[in-house]
């Protein structure tokens, strides 16, 4: 297995773990908030599913996008730096997605609360 493949696989596994962690931490609170704001179970389910899909797709896309210089016979810390470099890209993309989603939920709350 080439050094690139090892770094890619480790990044992929780490990205999946980050996505699972984000989903587990945010989902219960997000569900409660949406249930309170939209008062329509289907809409709550739609926004929760959309959140999960977007986070998974963007994390996997960011993991696929990255490239790092790793030569045959690279030392342990060179692998760590390469993986950290790739993970930085994944976390950046996830942060942008979370900010966009927060913006969307804020607009949703503002629009629906005004009409309550």
């Amino acid at each position: 297995m080439s050094p690139h493949s090892i770094a890619f696989l480790v990044t992929l596994v780490a990205s999946i773990l980050i996505v699972v962690l984000i989903n587990r931490l945010l989902r219960p609170g997000l569900r409660g908030l949406l249930e309170q704001v939209v008062a329509l179970p289907a809409a709550t389910e739609f926004y929760l599913r959309a959140f999960a899909i977007v986070v998974v797709l963007i994390a996997l896309a960011a993991a696929l996008d990255t490239y790092s210089e790793l030569k045959e016979g690279a030392r342990f810390m060179e692998y760590i730096w390469a993986i950290a470099d790739r993970l930085k890209h994944v976390v950046e993309e996830l942060l942008v997605v979370l900010l966009v989603y927060v913006g969307l939920i804020t607009v949703l709350m503002a629009a629906l609360r005004r009409r309550q």
Binding site: I53, L60, A61, L64
Partner: peptide, 8 residues
Amino acid sequence: QVTGEWIA
């Protein structure tokens, strides 16, 4: 990667 971004 681009497919994932477009779907998102």
